[in-house]
Design a protein around this nucleic acid. Sequence first.
DNA 1: CGCCGTGTTGACTATTCTCAACCCAGGTGG
DNA 2: CCACCTGGGTTGAGAATAGTCAACACGGCG
Lengths: 245, 245
Amino acid sequence: MTQALIRKLEAFTALSEAEKAAVLAAPATVRQLEAREDLTREGDHVNAVNVLLTGFALRYKTLADGRRQIVSIIVPGDFCDLRAYLLGGIDYSLAAVTTATVGIIPRERLDQLVAAHPRLRDALTWCGLVEEAIAREWILNVGQRTALERAAHLFCELFHRLRAVGLTRGKRCELPLTQTELGEAMGLSAVHVNRTVQELRRLGLISLEGRELTIHDLPMLEAAALFSPAYLHLAGRSAERLQRA
Amino acid sequence: MTQALIRKLEAFTALSEAEKAAVLAAPATVRQLEAREDLTREGDHVNAVNVLLTGFALRYKTLADGRRQIVSIIVPGDFCDLRAYLLGGIDYSLAAVTTATVGIIPRERLDQLVAAHPRLRDALTWCGLVEEAIAREWILNVGQRTALERAAHLFCELFHRLRAVGLTRGKRCELPLTQTELGEAMGLSAVHVNRTVQELRRLGLISLEGRELTIHDLPMLEAAALFSPAYLHLAGRSAERLQRA
DNA sequence: CGCCGTGTTGACTATTCTCAACCCAGGTGG
DNA sequence: CCACCTGGGTTGAGAATAGTCAACACGGCG
């Protein structure tokens, strides 16, 4: 069930069988989330680390008057709150989009894990760095890209991330967000998202129907998005490259 | 010279004299940067960790056609590239705004440091989490806030962060960014920044002249910005609170 | 059968951008 | 010592992107 996580970690470094087994065994319990259910609210304090196993989730922040911004999309294999137990209180909320399952790794268990398998510590740190890199790209996205570029970019990112954990089928992948939610992720109104998506369809770049995204021409979509996958750091095995150096 | 860093870390946990001494001694060398000089470029690979000791710096990303987005403002005590040696290549560039000095901590030295003082490892991880929290708030900023709110928010954040490391004098602090740069940080054009700053002045909330920012009424400015300092995680000593729990 | 959530469309508005000009202070070279 | 040049800040006018409001369509579910 933590397959996706292992697959992701292996983009950083090859894992031994013992390490893989340790990761697989890490979650003490698994929790089921209903669609729309909150896992965490702003201000909560956590003492475990949650890994998303199946489904989609959103990390979001709200303003006092209700405006909401989605600050990350969480897909299987992603951590919901890596190391967040070090913070006094969490600064975001986290909600499931679809029904979802999360693996709960208690803090002590994580400590044991990295003590027993030192390379996993680096792997987890790397996960945090990638998350941060994605956040930076999102700042660029909302700050500089036009609506069309923004939407195209979001679709490219999601597709690459899902492909990295084996959740694409050919040119297709799941995309269970409503247009309102897509708008909250891109800093656009729902109406404008609708028109923008239609434009991408009209250009023959994508189809989006029934919670499923089809990318007809990924290179073209990437060009339209000014997308370059480097920031996802999935290109492979940076740990190994380091060793050789 | 790493005073600011120590001060910041102490917002997470009280440090022993030995730990403070270790942090002070961490930088193997100090490098001087000219105003506008790049420390890092997209794609670079680093094998050390740089701490900003004096001056201001910017982390930024660019689009193929030249659009530029500043993704973080780095003030004394902040890391320029914490743990970035784990990445295959860096996904951002980093430039000094003013003349600046950075302390260079080689990777091995950092490893020794956290091995000798385990609590410092958590402190550094905490720094990374705070950085990430700031990035999330910036997504919210560009995604949802109006131009006026955005500018007010940026000023509030900077003031709080500088105050935390002892770099404010009463209601004043340095702010050496040009209006063009402020625009690149907020996703606004330089012209619009100008009009927005004037509006904040007209409201009597701030003065901004000669690279110096004065906040006449911080509570009012915070209200105008929908600012709440929780995300900066400076409220103190989360490590201690954890222990008591 | 009717309701609700989501997607779609049109008409109008408004925030923000672009372009272009101008000002001013500080630094440089003659 | 002064002329000039440059980088930043400021202003105005017009254009464009994106937002708002309101209505309607459609499908699934109670």
